[in-house]
């Protein structure tokens, strides 16, 4: 390495010959995010320890008290925990972006001739890869506590594909949060008070027929419910009782979830990119 001190100066290409594009720039940012994750394993706890903890807590602590018609609670549970963990995936990227903004990294990126949207695109790509960690860990953990894939390989692949697609949507929710909220603390505060209840007013942990009146209606149309039910359907796990005359969203959970995925990305991605660009004017 010291040879450079005696070598001829490194020639950099002239400005006119430097070519960049969105994908290449995003990948540079994504690689940086992945390095951050590797060197800060404690920040991965929400993707590693937390989902495993939830599986064990609900399987062994609450599981005995919750009855599911036509099946085992632990098989019912996994669809819900997958869905909840994927929703929580919004936090990781939101916190990473908010801390990039507060510590000046975003300013550094903005002063560079990067492709528009590459900072957000890179964060999103890295976090999509990150989301594979909890999905894999929970699958293994679920298998250990008694969860099984009962309805064939093809549908199971569909289940995992749906999880990845839903992760992608939730990451854009996180990107929007991280772009709009002023600090890491704000992300944690606002995120916890809004996202946390959304994951509980759903059929995540209890069959939907056990919820009273208004809560039940909210839960029926909550995408966390449809995501949980779609996974239960695709993995051949019990859904519990929907009650009489179930909502369309419960009868077609895969389709309803896909609509939400498209809707979330279509709304959050442009808003996040616009908010990011506009903060330049500040």
């Amino acid at each position: 390495m010291t040879t450079t001190s005696v070598a001829a100066p490194v020639v950099v290409p002239p400005v006119a010959e430097r070519r960049g594009n969105f994908l290449a720039d995003s990948w540079v940012v994504a690689r940086r995010s992945l390095i951050h994750m590797r060197r800060q394993p404690e920040a991965l706890a929400d993707a590693t320890l937390q989902p495993v903890m939830f599986v064990l807590l609900f399987a062994y602590v609450f599981g005995g008290a919750i009855a599911v018609d036509g099946g085992d609670y632990r098989e019912f549970l996994m669809g819900g925990i997958f869905a909840q963990t994927i929703v929580f995936g919004a936090f990781g990227v939101a916190i990473a972006l908010a801390s990039d903004r507060t510590n000046g990294a975003i300013d550094r990126f903005r002063s560079l001739p990067m492709a528009r949207g590459a900072v957000l695109g890179g964060h999103a790509a890295a976090n999509l890869l990150r989301s594979l960690i909890p999905i894999a860990l929970m699958s293994v953990c679920g298998l250990i506590v008694g969860w099984r894939i009962n309805d064939g390989f093809g549908k199971a692949v569909g289940g995992f594909a749906l999880m990845i697609a839903f992760s992608f949507a939730m990451i854009w929710v996180g990107v929007l949060m991280g772009t709009l909220l002023p600090s890491v603390e704000a992300v944690q505060g606002v995120g916890f008070t809004t996202i946390f209840p959304v994951t509980f007013i759903a059929s995540t942990f209890v069959p939907i027929s056990t919820l009273p009146g208004v809560l039940r209606t909210i839960a029926e149309w909550n995408p966390v419910t449809s995501m949980s039910e779609a996974l239960r359907q695709l993995f051949g796990n019990p859904s519990g009782d929907f009650g009489a005359d179930p909502a369309w969203s419960l009868q077609h959970p895969v389709a309803y979830t896909l609509i939400w995925i498209v809707g979330i990305v279509a709304v959050c991605a442009p808003l996040a990119i616009r908010a990011y660009q506009r903060s330049v004017a500040g």
Binding site: P13, R18, G20, A24, I35, N103, A105, F109, L112, P113
Partner: peptide, 25 residues
């Protein structure tokens, strides 16, 4: 910038390489 915005979780060399790549060198 005023507060030396180097990336603490990257090595010094990685910091410089990243800047070079984002300048499309």
């Amino acid at each position: 910038a005023q507060d030396a915005t180097v990336d603490g979780l990257l090595t010094g060399r990685e910091n410089l390489i990243m800047i070079g790549e984002l300048h499309h060198l």
